[in-house]
């Protein structure tokens, strides 16, 4: 499992697309894969949008995490790539939902980071290897 992480508009998706060029990919934007994967590689991006709407409709952090754990188990034999957006280096949001999202995202990202075998940080298109991988 590979995580591609960085601030907004830093070129994370472009980096993933370039790396997966020529391969069959199932790409999930703001949602999680449910049915059995068709392609060997699965990309999950924009989960912050999904988690925000889950929190807004009263779904607990426990449930959100459980759902992610189940997903990781289900797709453990696939090449799973996460595109995670760092949103937690700004000032404390005024909106209570955004404050909650920040806390939940921070913990969820920590969980995903601990599960990942490879982590790449993208800074304006420049990759930096944070964990595992070949440092490309």
């Amino acid at each position: 499992m590979h995580i591609v992480f960085g601030g907004a508009f830093n070129g994370k998706r472009e980096y993933v697309k370039k790396r997966l060029a020529g391969q069959e990919v199932d790409w999930f934007e703001s949602k999680l894969p449910k049915s059995p994967a068709v392609s060997a590689a699965i990309v999950v991006a924009g989960i912050e949008h999904r988690i925000k709407s889950q929190l807004a409709s009263g779904i607990s952090e426990f449930h959100i995490r459980e759902e992610l754990q189940e997903m990781l188990a289900k797709y453990k034999d696939n090449k799973l790539i996460w595109v995670l957006t760092d949103m937690n280096r700004g000032i404390v949001p005024i909106d209570p939902l955004e404050r909650e999202l920040r806390d939940v995202l921070g913990r969820i990202y920590q969980f995903l980071f601990s599960e990942a075998t490879e982590i790449t940080r993208i800074w304006y298109g420049i990759p930096q290897n944070l964990k595992g991988g070949d440092g490309r």
Partner: peptide
């Protein structure tokens, strides 16, 4: 560095990311 935060001004932040890249 202003892109590691919630999106406050999407047009500004999108442009800045593009310019920085």
């Amino acid at each position: 560095e202003v892109l590691d935060d919630f999106i406050r001004d999407e047009m500004y932040q999108r442009w800045l990311g593009r310019i920085h890249c």
